[in-house]
Amino acid sequence: MSKCEQDMPTEQKVKFYQTGTFTVGNRLLDEEFRTVQATQERSNSIDSGHRACQGCGQALGARYALDAAMRATDNHIIAANATGCLEVFTTPYPETAWSIPWIHSLFGNAAAVVSGIAARLKAEGDTQTRVVAQGGDGGTTDIGLGCLSGMFDRNDDVLYICYDNGGYMNTGVQRSSATPGGARTATTMPVGEHPGSSFNTGKFLPSIAMAHEIPYVATASVHDLHDLERKVEKAMSFRGSRYIHINVPCPLGWGSEPALTIKLARMGVECGLVPLFEAESGELTASTKIRYQIPVEDYLKLQRRFSHVLKPANSDELEAIRALAQKNIRRFNLR
């Protein structure tokens, strides 16, 4: 249950269920509970006119995360970006969508670049200005992991946000170590034995971040933007390294309808494949309970990347995905 929900009077909570989609429109809420993004005075980290695809989960997640970071720091925020979709679609030369100071250096070094910025602020004695680094799952879990682990170890005063869409979507949908087992990508096609992405041992970065015992780790999803905002604000209340892993549907890479981005983000959570939780100094402190658990098939069947998994011949793959959902539910205490 998000903080917003907790603070609400009981009768208002009911309204969450009125639309039948587990979502609630802004207009159904009392003014004090409406999203700040609905006001004209809202912060605006990423301006309109950028080149993201229709239904891009990352564009939505990044804007809400960075806007929340701007509010939390009274606009004293600097962002670094790994190479990837977010970098490309926000800065098509000679334009930029960023209204905050922003730097892109390389694919694998966002965590080290941002640490360098933080070092300069430290040397200057500037405690007001804060820094955020952002990367996709490839730039975070694969090529950028060394720099990120170093940043965690030094406990540099940085919020690192990973937008996880489960693959290298910017280069044409190849497998990353965050690609779900069984998913079709351009480098894990549904052919031969064990079609789709290999399951491997898993490389779940929030757990890796927790193992570094940094002050704050959270996962979030773009279907619950208030929860995302709250987690960013909470992250900004800590000093030291903080990590937020946001699940962002990608219509291009997932083979899903752009209009279904929010629904898919919610279904990922409700089926157990996308656990939402928070951890402090390596210990789990809160989990978002699944309200109505849905079968993983309901989630998978809306994505072409899993279409082969639902064929009877590939029941092993489906079973492995079901097992992962069950494991998440146990491990992160989701029921």
Binding site: L106, N109, A112, V114, S115, G116, K122, G150, R154
Partner: peptide, 22 residues
């Protein structure tokens, strides 16, 4: 002066990039 032991030369130069840009 902020002096930092970093995790690789790749991180080291990247750290320089961030610091210098700041």
């Amino acid at each position: 002066c902020a002096y930092e032991n970093v995790d690789s030369e790749f991180s080291s130069m990247s750290f320089c990039i961030g610091a210098s840009a700041a």
